[in-house]
Amino acid sequence: MDPIVTNLKRASIELILLSILKEEDMYGYQLAGEIKRRTNDRLSILEGSMYTILNRLKENGDVSFRSELVGKKMTRVYYHITDTGLKHLDEMLITFNEYVKIIESVVNKE
């Protein structure tokens, strides 16, 4: 993968995850599938990376999780965005949009 895309992905993954969780609680595999679906397979995130980010979001208080029993033995972990996470998401969106404008002003200079 292009290093630029890799770096951009790393920088925006929290924004992507919180944006999706804002709509509904999801479990890990579901989140990974949702990202692929919304981006038409143009963006995919390895679940290992995703869990790492989700753990960090949990430590920051942006996300909480609950375990649900599925079937007889299997448990599933559902992630939920907290009020802190919603506030953080709004701030990130503002920063992100501003940054995109800054880059565009340089790259699309006329």
Binding site: Y27, G28, Y29, E47, G48, Y51, T52, N55, V70, M74, T75, R76, V77
Partner: peptide, 12 residues
Amino acid sequence: ELKNNLKTFFND
């Protein structure tokens, strides 16, 4: 953390 993540992954 990795061990917990792997266990979560194997749930799915």
